[in-house]
């Protein structure tokens, strides 16, 4: 029995990787932590919708919109990396977010919020609106005023317009108005 075990030990040799003195056994395929690039983020919130663990959060704080990556909750699925249209989340093979300070686990970007011209509530980031304008301009689409409204006001505005349209139709005596 002893000779078998000794033979096994001799054949297998030294298996230990002397991390941290030696580099770790890390393949390039490893899905590591994400690096958040604040210069590229526009605060669209696509990442927060796909994240299964809610490690990506979008929060309105005062007149700022904060995008937050909580590495402590991240399950390293990289769904946000595939979802981000701006490449603001970079996939790395880094595994070391170890810390003794809880706050170090958060990466935050505060975006300037755009206020709704009608009700004044913060509903999107200025950068996102600038980006949308840019896209619309390049497509040659005219930017209407109601695009600036928050979703709630836009809904009310749309209903109001619809209603005005219907009343107008009724006055003109059209029988089958828009419902």
């Amino acid at each position: 029995m002893i000779h078998r075990i000794l033979a096994l030990a001799l054949k297998s040799g030294v298996a230990t990787v002397r991390y941290p003195r030696q580099p770790p056994i890390l393949t390039e395929e490893f899905r590591g932590f994400l690096v958040f690039d604040p210069t590229k983020c526009v605060g669209c919130g696509a990442c927060t919708r796909v994240c299964p663990a809610n490690a990506m959060n979008l929060e309105i704080r005062g007149n700022e919109i904060v995008v937050e990556y909580f590495a402590g909750r991240c399950i390293l699925c990289h769904l946000c990396f595939y979802a981000c249209p701006f490449g603001a989340l970079v996939a790395t093979t880094s595994f070391d977010r170890t810390t003794t300070n809880f706050e170090d686990l958060f990466d935050r970007v505060a975006h300037e919020g755009a206020a709704c011209p009608s009700c004044g509530s913060i509903h999107a980031t200025k950068r996102l609106i600038q980006f949308v304008d840019l896209v619309l301009k390049s497509e040659g689409i005219e930017i209407e005023d109601r695009l600036r409204l928050c979703p709630e006001c836009r809904r009310i505005e749309a209903l109001r317009a619809l209603n005005a349209f219907r009343i107008g139709m009724e006055r003109e005596g059209v029988e089958h108005g828009v419902e």
Partner: peptide, 22 residues
């Protein structure tokens, strides 16, 4: 003292790092 080793699962190397930092 509290140390945090995030990751799902945390790699053994990260655990070693964590203990050293702690």
């Amino acid at each position: 003292v509290v140390g945090y080793v995030p990751g799902c699962p945390a790699r053994p190397e990260a655990i070693i790092d964590g203990i050293i930092k702690l």
